[in-house]
Design a protein around this nucleic acid. Structure first.
Lengths: 347, 347
DNA sequence: ATAAATAATGTAAGCGCTTTCATATAGCCT
DNA sequence: AGGCTATATGAAAGCGCTTACATTATTTAT
């Protein structure tokens, strides 16, 4: 490996003025051509077009942003990219932003809300035109700053009419209610839950609430030692599942905070020789690609990650353009019943 | 859902001049305080600090970038975020960038090199100070433009001393050589491969070459119908594996282009009642979290995704700072032997 | 103390665009 | 053709910072 001092010279780039001179027009005309080609007459437009092409002109976004007061960038601040479902959502968000002429500024905060405050501050300095957040749980100063700076934002991955924030998401609580209802209908009564960590995470919390809503309506609940929280990782899921299954009586169904935890739970059952769904049913949340491929295939809730990314982009772009938008947009979560759930006690 | 026209007023934000006036100093002093606090005397620094805090001042990055000719943003253009290994690398890249004061501009191009050209162009307009690319396969105009604009870039996920581009990556070919060597040592002779799509993808190509290097050195090769390319998805892996195993004679080992394909292959074996590794051995590439958790656990190559993200960030930041850097940095790939490989013919 | 050297500060000129406003040109109607 | 309107164009003023340079304040050395 060679070690070299590479003097990287920031080339003396072409500017608008250079193009203007080369095309014998004013800078205003070049600017107009670039932003709205039809507003300049064909003959001169052609001159400008050629000058731009020949000189390899690349507009300076900083100058543009400063003069126009719009950076044409959009920020997204997410917990982590290591969770495939966020990655999928962001992927779609970015793609759609690009189609609208925007570029994505991305930051993650690893579920640490203080870190999120800092990451958001960094994006605000870069003068993003809009911001995508995950969920509603954010430090008050986040909302304060966003409002003070007049940066439009939208919360995703969650939905709540009681929330004052614009959002494009789904109802975590209701989704879990539906899944729980289904489980009760097929006969389950002894529920356990391997929830995601609920501190500073409204999505995880809502999922737990959804389960409890239904159970309580039937006079049931999740027993204290049948409730565990764990990180969204296979390993955490395995460990928690093991601890859970070493108790007795065992639950007849274990509802997991997401598919990754459920995957871990399923693996642990296999290594403990616990039959799924014969001995215990397992459910997930997200419907990652692996869910349908597991053996047995995972019963779960399909989160509209891609649709959410697209809609969130449209929402922000529309608002910036001054168009009317649905301020609280709800997307559907689909209940996907597969093979990890069955009536209890069956073999 | 209520539909509302939300007039988002870009607040009249505080400027440097406002702070300067409030603190009774010049704008130059405020600027210095912000960029290098020690260069202004304590007593006035304090005045400025207070004004900034009280007035909730947020510097305007566009103005800053224009005046200083540095945007403090770094671009990354990747094939897709849907592949967990890229997500992991980008996660680390962003974290380290942030620590160095940079913000990440992210774009993906879905393995379409023309799309990559466009995405890169968009980032260049935003005047990123540096750029992270994946692999060496890029349209010539990408390199041309990058050089013309003097934007430092670094290719990751690959390494080659024969390449002229700066890189921080690992040697895909050599990694596969080692894995293949191991497989030959335990007795395999009939190799099959489920490669990633090699068109416009030097990493996928190098992996295939690595396998062939070793086989050819022993007078062997992958038979034409024992070689298939597929997308990096579970489903594609399953389909390809099925087609492969319906032939005879069956290979004794199937080397996959990455863990996701291998996962698909493994699942397909399970549904075809083919025993792994008894009937056939399977290998992956990446060592995703699921690799170690599969049943049987997957033999694979551990890609240093996080380390690569961190090092790539350091590389770019150093170069921009004018420091000397290792222009071609090679990271190690670890051979992880688990349970999906065994000598052939054993049960 | 005083001069010389050093450090801190202010002044003002940009950075490369967009956009208002005034002016020039083209298109239209009679 | 001539006048009127609609449309293109150019000149120039910023957008909010950084930074070279000139100036002033503070140290340090003598």
């Amino acid at each position: 490996m060679k070690r070299t001092r590479l003097h990287h010279k920031r080339q003396s780039n072409q500017t608008l003025a250079d193009i203007a001179k080369a095309a014998s027009v004013s800078t205003a005309t070049v600017s107009r051509f670039l932003n709205n080609p039809d507003s300049v007459r064909p003959e001169r437009a052609e001159r400008v077009r050629r000058a731009v092409a020949e000189m390899g002109y690349v507009p300076n976004g900083a100058a543009r942003a400063l003069a126009s007061q719009r950076s044409m960038t959009m920020g997204a601040v997410i917990p982590t990219l290591d969770n495939a479902i966020f990655a999928t959502g962001i992927e779609a968000f970015q793609r759609r932003l690009y189609e609208s002429g925007y570029t994505l500024l991305l930051a993650s905060f690893n579920f640490d809300l203080e870190e999120e405050v800092r990451q958001i501050a960094a994006l605000m300095e870069r003068r993003v035109d809009g911001m995508l957040l995950i969920g509603f749980d954010h430090r008050p100063e986040v909302y304060a700053k966003l409002d003070a700076m007049g940066v439009p934002y939208v919360c995703s991955w969650a939905f709540g009419l009681d929330q004052k924030s614009p959002c494009v998401g789904f109802d975590n609580r209701d989704a879990m209610r539906r899944l729980t209802t289904y489980l009760m209908e097929i006969g389950h009564r002894r529920f356990a839950m391997l929830a995601g960590e609920t501190a500073h995470n409204d999505r995880a919390r809502d999922r737990v609430l959804g389960v409890r809503d239904v159970l309580k309506s039937k006079g049931l609940d999740i027993e204290a030692d049948a409730y565990r929280e764990c990180a969204y990782s296979i390993r955490a899921g395995r460990l928690a599942m093991r601890a859970l299954m070493e108790q007795s009586p065992r639950p007849t169904v274990v509802m997991c905070g997401n598919d990754v935890i459920a995957f871990g739970a399923l693996l642990e059952c296999q290594s403990m020789a616990i039959h799924v769904p014969g001995d215990v049913s397992i459910t997930g949340f997200d419907d990652l690609p692996l869910a349908s491929n597991l053996q047995p295939a995972l019963t779960t809730l399909r989160v509209p990650a891609t649709a959410m990314g697209l809609r969130a982009s449209d929402h922000l772009v529309s608002r910036i353009a001054g168009n009317s938008v649905i301020l609280q947009e709800k997307l559907d979560v689909e209940l996907i019943i597969r093979e990890t759930t069955a009536p209890p006690g069956r073999v």
